[in-house]
Amino acid sequence: MKTIITVALVFTLLLTTSIIMGGNTHDEEQEHGYKNTYSRQLDVAPVSNITYAEECGSCHFAYQPGLLPEKSWIKIMTDLENHFDENAELDADLQKELTDYLVQNSADKSNYKRSKRIMRALGKSDAPLRITKTLYFVRKHDEIPYRIVKNNKDIGSFSNCTACHSNAEKGSYNEHDVKIPGYGRWED
């Protein structure tokens, strides 16, 4: 009798555990989406298009598409001749290929944590041209004095993600990875 009770208890325990585990998996899917299969740490989907990484990354950090909504990317990509006071013109084929990639992976279509938060903080018709102008970005950086960035020759601008976010290229903007040149780690 005792054995039967023990077996029954163990079985119940196992069942409960599997339900809880199953529940967790479900939550994770809800939060991170089906695209994120390899890391819970990632904030935005890493860049997956080599042409994008090469073309845009030859002048600046290849910002992940999940950092801005579709409307923003379209605005940016249709005026590459005046790209933040630079000329970044592409031929029509390349321009279309990169626009498609950006649009398909834009923040409004992403299930990654930060993409969702960027979208949540934006108004419905907002289409900022700069990631640094999104409300979410501003809020997350409002404790950092302007001079630490602007007067720092190793940073120069808030748009220089990789200067402080050591894992930005992998799509991780975790504050534990932040190291401000000349100031060290930064945690609030």
Binding site: E81, E86, N87, A88, E89, L90, D91
Partner: peptide
């Protein structure tokens, strides 16, 4: 040619 186009215009 891509860079000539961009940089000459700029």
């Amino acid at each position: 040619k891509k860079w000539f186009k961009r940089n000459c215009k700029w």
